[in-house]
């Protein structure tokens, strides 16, 4: 069974530090959410720009969720999960990208 001291430091930061992480996460995700809603609500962005801006904000926010709420980071001990998530991202990108490419292309030729 495990020795306590072989835990990587990043997992053993103590309650206060971990609470600060959650609070940071809450602030960051709230700010990103409000930014996205604000930009669209104010009509400041639209069309292709909106898609790019929203996509960027969404990716940053998803990363923030993983980082602050799900505690996934680049530490060595976390690589199993990180690899899994990155591989999933690759597969998801292939599936979504391919489907969108195929269906939009097909639509123009029907």
């Amino acid at each position: 069974m495990s020795d306590d001291h072989d835990l990587p430091r990043s997992e053993d930061v103590g309650e206060a530090a971990e609470r600060r992480q959650y609070i940071r996460g809450a602030v960051a995700t709230l700010a990103l959410t409000l930014a996205a809603f604000g930009l669209v609500g104010s009509g400041y962005v639209s069309g292709g720009t909106a898609l790019v801006v929203l996509c960027t904000l969404a990716i940053v926010q998803i990363a923030a969720h993983f980082r602050f709420f799900l505690h996934i980071d680049l530490a060595r001990s976390h690589r199993d999960d990180l690899q899994l998530i990155l591989f999933t991202a690759l597969i998801v990108a292939l599936m979504v990208g391919g489907t969108v490419w195929i269906l939009f292309d097909q639509h123009t030729r029907m």
């Binding site: 597969i91 292939l94 391919g98 195929i102 292309d105 030729r109």
Partner: peptide, 20 residues
């Protein structure tokens, strides 16, 4: 990994562009 990048070859004749 490649097996996730080839599915369209089951419907080449659907009418999509030649580059796809």
């Amino acid at each position: 990994v490649l097996s996730f990048t080839v599915w369209l070859h089951h419907f080449f004749t659907m009418g999509q562009s030649a580059n796809v």
